[in-house]
Design a protein around this nucleic acid. Structure first.
Lengths: 203, 203
DNA sequence: ATAGTAGTTGACTAGTTAGTCAACTTGAAT
DNA sequence: ATTCAAGTTGACTAACTAGTCAACTACTAT
C-alpha cells in the first residue's frame, strides 16, 4: 500500500543535529526540511510541529543509545569499571563530535531540557522521562559498588542524582568553553562524589 | 544636556527576566520592548542587537551580584561556612524565583551559555568571563579549607571547577524537573566532592 | 529663557516564519 | 496491469521578525 519513505527518519536526524550544533530555538522547520532534503508539506505529513518532531527524535535517539548503555553498564562488569567505561565513552563521543563539527557540543538532552523547560512542556516531559532511565544505570552501578564495599553510598538513588548532575554540568561547561579538557576531571570527580574508599586506580 | 532616561536599565531588566523565564531564542526584541515599556526605536538607540543587550544585561547583573558574593565568601568567614552560606543563598534565591514566577528557573548564565555557545560568540565570551570570576570565589574558599586541614584539595582550581560544574548541573536539573527539592542534596554533594574529612556538621 | 543634545516615537520595509492545501506521483498488494 | 493508499510537491497566506528613519520632545547646562 502506497510508497515507502525514509523522510521521517531523515527529519529526526536533521533536527537532532541542528539542535545539538545550534539550539532548539534557532532551529526552524525550514532549516530542518532543507537539511533533511524534505519539503515542508512532507514535514507536516509526518509531524504536527517542531516540538512533536523533537519528541520523536529524542525518543528514537534514546532507543538507539539504550543498547550501548546496556553494554557499558552490564552487571557482569565490576561497578567501578562501569563508571570508568561511562567516562571513557563520554570523552570519546565528545571528541568525535568535536572532530565532526569543530566544536564541543555537550549533552543534547540537557541543553534542550534547559532551553525548553518553561516553554515546551511535552518535550520537557519526554526529556525528564529519559533522564530517569539514565539515572537508573548509575543508581544500580552505585548500589553494586556499595554492596561490594567499594564506596560508601547508603542511598544509591541520591548519589546517582549527584553524579548525573555533575556529568551534565561538566558536559555543559565543556560546551560553553568549547574545551574538551574540561572533561578530564570527570572520573576523578565521580570518585570523589562516590566517596571512593582508598586511593584511585582501585579498578 | 538632553533628557535623561532609564530605558537602558529597563531593557536590561526585561531581557534578563524574559530569558530566565523562557529562553534566549524565544525572547524577541518586540517582547523585550513591550515588557520594558520602551519603543523599538529607543531599543536601537541604546543597543545594536539582542545579543548586544544581553551582554550588557549579563554584565550589569554580575556587577550587582558581586557585592553579595563578596559577603558570602568573605575571608573572615570560616571556609566551610562560606560553602554553607553559598548553598543557603542558592536555595533561597531559587525559592524566591519559584514564588515569583511559579517555576524553578535555575542559573540564567548556564542556560544562556548552553543555548548560545555555538551561535553568539561575544555573548558566550562574556558568560565565560563571568564564570571565571565565580569560580575564583570557590577556589579561594577551597584553598583556605585545605590549608586549615578541613578537606583534602591539593589542587583548589580543579576542585572549584568540579564543584562549580556540580552546582550548575544541579540547578539545571531543578529547572528541567521544576522541582526545588533537587537542590536539597547540594551541600552534602559539595562536601563529598571536597572530600570533607570526617562526618558532616563540622561547620 | 533658550539652545542644543539626549532620548522618543510610530510608521515603514523587507525578510522570515509556521502552517495549509489541492493536485500530483509512486509503488506495494492484489 | 491496475488500483489506491502512502507519500510528495510547490505555491499560497498571515503573522511575526529585525532593523531603519525622519520628525518630534523634553530636559539640562548655560
Amino acid at each position: 500500500m502506497g510508497r515507502v519513505s525514509d523522510a521521517r527518519e531523515k527529519l529526526m536526524e536533521a533536527v537532532m543535529e541542528l539542535i545539538h550544533t545550534g539550539s532548539y530555538g534557532s532551529t526552524t522547520i525550514d532549516h530542518i526540511c532543507e537539511k533533511a532534503g524534505v519539503k515542508k508539506g512532507s514535514f507536516y505529513y509526518f509531524f504536527d510541529s517542531k516540538s512533536d518532531l523533537a519528541i520523536a527524535a529524542v525518543e528514537a535517539r534514546f532507543q538507539e543509545d539504550r543498547k550501548l548503555a546496556d553494554a557499558i553498564f552490564s552487571p557482569a562488569i565490576p561497578p567501578l569499571e562501569r563508571i570508568h567505561g561511562m567516562c571513557h565513552y563520554l570523552l570519546e563521543r565528545q571528541g568525535e563530535l568535536q572532530k565532526k563539527h569543530g566544536r564541543v557540543l555537550g549533552c543534547p538532552l540537557h541543553s534542550i531540557g534547559a532551553e525548553v523547560s518553561t516553554e515546551e512542556p511535552e518535550l520537557c516531559a519526554k526529556i525528564q522521562e529519559i533522564m530517569v532511565h539514565h539515572r537508573k544505570y548509575l543508581e544500580s552501578t552505585i548500589r553494586d559498588a556499595h554492596a561490594q564495599g567499594l564506596i560508601h553510598a547508603p542511598d544509591p538513588a541520591a548519589k546517582a542524582e549527584m553524579v548525573f548532575a555533575y556529568y551534565e554540568g561538566l558536559l555543559t561547561h565543556a560546551r560553553i568553553q568549547n574545551d574538551l579538557s574540561v572533561l578530564n576531571e570527570m572520573e576523578e570527580g565521580t570518585m570523589s562524589l562516590l566517596g571512593l574508599k582508598e586511593t584511585a586506580s582501585a579498578r
